[in-house]
Design a binder for these strands. Structure first.
Lengths: 197, 197
DNA sequence: AGGGTATCGCAACGCCGTTATGGTACGGTG
DNA sequence: CACCGTACCATAACGGCGTTGCGATACCCT
């Protein structure tokens, strides 16, 4: 039946690597299909054969980002102290957002009403990455340490707060990043706990 | 000594209005110098005479945004309850961020290490807009309702949290926006207050 | 061994931001 | 009032962008 798609992924990987490096070094606005193709030693046509469009290439980069978040989330230890676990998760999110600031900022532009429809694989990755966070929050709630009953709402709120901290840190607005993350998330948790009884 | 710069601002205003409308209706990526000039009934050269570049035009839009934030902040009432005042300020920030989502998101891209140097006027506007927030936090601290002594750090943290909520709401990730803003900022404040003694 | 398809080089299209050139309209000065 | 210097902006062009039609090639599957 002809040549299968997964003959070899060397060109695909080189295009991805070139795009990631250009994006990290000079920002996404410096990433053009021509430059990516040149750096990968091929032509623009390869991008359109392999990814469909420049946006397709960017989505592939985003999927790699979500995989990385899953890795970092899985690395955080799980103890019998749900409050400590929830607070510890900030390290995973913070590291994820700050180790590739350019890519992190680009992720948000793809989410929302005017955004392009995300691929099913990307959606599944994003969902599974937040599953562990949701579980940690649920364990806190079961331990009676949270006033709020809506676990999904709490998960989204945690993510929103972390996102704000991440963007501020990436933009150099946080004087002491580690301290700000600790203080804000601890205060948020303590505030929810204070309403519990 | 010849024709002064402020002869009339009609072309300038029309360009600004066209750019704002295009950005709101179809997103900033749909805003091209040609389209803006066409909609304003002039040519691209006018943009470069009046604003220097497309980025200059965007900065003018940002200055209008900061003016609007100042307006909204000034509208929030000031009572003798510092906690209530601080919580009430969320309405100003929330309205500001959500009434022009496209422009709000663009603002962040201009702030940061790789961003273009902002105009002095824009900087002053941004600074004065946060002054009232800082003052409200200082009054809370004076009333002994906050554990933290570093008012500037608290101001930045408040802004970071508000920013995260704003972006999540603009991207349709908050099921009940009003509730999330209230819950998160109240919990944050309560958490800080709980550490006070 | 051969057919069929995924891959990708080449050249082109229409759009973009930007600018060199020049014409025009207007406020200030004599 | 004449006129001059300057701000404003119309025209046309340049290089770069994302994208695509066409053709050649390399490779898996039967």
């Amino acid at each position: 039946m002809g040549r299968p798609r997964e003959h070899d992924t060397v060109t695909r990987d080189r295009l991805l690597a070139a795009a990631a490096r250009l994006s990290a070094d000079e920002g996404w606005e410096a990433v053009s299909v021509r430059r990516v193709a040149d750096e990968a030693g091929t032509t623009t046509r390869a991008v359109y054969s392999l990814f469909g469009s420049k946006q397709g290439l960017e989505e592939a980069l985003h999927e790699a980002m979500f995989e990385r978040l899953g890795e970092l989330m899985a690395e955080t230890p799980r103890s019998d102290d749900p409050r400590g676990d929830l607070l510890a998760m900030r390290h995973a999110y913070r590291r994820w957002a700050t180790e590739r600031p350019e890519r992190y900022a680009a992720l948000m532009r793809f989410t929302g009403p005017r955004a392009a429809p995300r691929s099913p694989a990307g959606l599944a990755l994003a969902r599974s990455a937040t599953a562990e966070l949701r579980e940690a929050i649920a364990r806190c709630a079961e331990a009676g340490q949270l006033a709020e009953r809506d676990i999904d709402a709490l998960t989204v709120q945690w993510r929103a707060v972390a996102h704000g901290l991440a963007e501020f840190e990436n933009h150099g607005l946080l004087e002491d990043g580690d301290l700000a993350w600790r203080r804000v998330l601890a205060a948020l948790f303590d505030g929810y706990a204070a309403q519990a009884h």
